[in-house]
Nucleic acid binder design. Sequence first.
DNA 1: GACCTCGTTGACCGGATGCTGACCCAACCT
DNA 2: AGGTTGGGTCAGCATCCGGTCAACGAGGTC
Lengths: 226, 226
Amino acid sequence: MRILVVEDEVDLAHTLHTGLTAEGYSVDLAHDGRQGLWMARTGEYALVVLDLMLPGLNGYKVCAQLRREGNATPILVLTAKDGDWDQAEALDTGADDYLAKPFSYMVLVARLRALVRRAATVAPPVLAVGDLSLDVAGRVCRRAGARVELTPREFAVLELLARRAGQAVSKADLLYHAWPDEAQDPNLVEARVSALRKKVDAAFHRQSLQTVRGTGYRLVDDRERD
Amino acid sequence: MRILVVEDEVDLAHTLHTGLTAEGYSVDLAHDGRQGLWMARTGEYALVVLDLMLPGLNGYKVCAQLRREGNATPILVLTAKDGDWDQAEALDTGADDYLAKPFSYMVLVARLRALVRRAATVAPPVLAVGDLSLDVAGRVCRRAGARVELTPREFAVLELLARRAGQAVSKADLLYHAWPDEAQDPNLVEARVSALRKKVDAAFHRQSLQTVRGTGYRLVDDRERD
DNA sequence: GACCTCGTTGACCGGATGCTGACCCAACCT
DNA sequence: AGGTTGGGTCAGCATCCGGTCAACGAGGTC
């Protein structure tokens, strides 16, 4: 579960990082609005914690821009002010929840958990590429309706490939997404993909997991080939 | 006993939060209608306190939408106006009680308690997953019609799994739901699930309580498996 | 074709994860 | 007080992941 914290105050950012990491999340930090926007766009985050007062590009704009791009990642807004106006505007631009500083750490974690959970139930939880489907909420994978058992790592890898179906995904991206603690070795990915191919492709005489030499892998709908 | 308060006025929301928490309820806050609707949908609340005047989506709509979805959670409506018209409309859309601001805190708590009590006796909500049914009000569990005796903790665990049937539920979520005072050890959950399996699955040669390795557990309808 | 790099995959094995029985304490009857 | 029940704690065991390594294969280049 990866979380993006967009916060320029170094102390608070650091506190959030250590706290949420201890809570079991993988936390990435962005220090200004522009960087936050960039990182959020990757769509890899289960949630974005966004300070409103930011250098460069303020939180309202980041939030509004993400929504304009169709990005539905849940956003929890933080702000020093607690006026109704701020709150209203933040929620209007598409934030999902709001917390005024100073806030209790427990409250933050509770809200955050609620948001993630809600998003999981509301968002379309099933990724589909051809007849391969991934139920992200239930952690269930099916090919042509048949259940395929995947290990957590396999699921994480296939999930990112499915989110970027048709696109080549670099091993670096896959490592970043599926190996929360920094792992480097590309062979980790190769080994997992190899295992996935057996379960998801070979067992069904398919070749949807393609190698993109020099880059990474690509997941495609391969039902009507040659 | 978990209560959802949907209220955009920060002061009032805060007052209600502290007050009701002191009263022994677990209180979650939503700050606008849309958020309130999402949170209420999880079905985890014994009661919803809903302000009518809300940004985004007003209280009438939230209420009406919940009822349309078959959600029977008791709803106590708050509003600044006290005209008969408002009251009538709120109750028509499916609210269970009505309170005009400003109101006495004592009155709120009394009404609220009454509502919870009434709801518990009047509308026994039954969760069902396959032939497993949980009567939440009566604390009764049945498999294929046969009564299964569960301890309180077992019931709490199974209840959350049933509410999120088909989805993988993390041990953290289960802890959060079934161990109100903060407990941490995942083994608590494992031990309860182990006990549940004996009563609910093994005794009926079933496997509806599935392990999702690395994540938690999932409750499914397993009646027609290969 | 020689050579090199990149990718694939099987084997191995250590560590993480989950399961469960045993034990025991605390709360609650009687 | 003595008995019963719930359930937290612990430890041992089983299972499963998945990281590591190395041998092999496939492409690409000269």
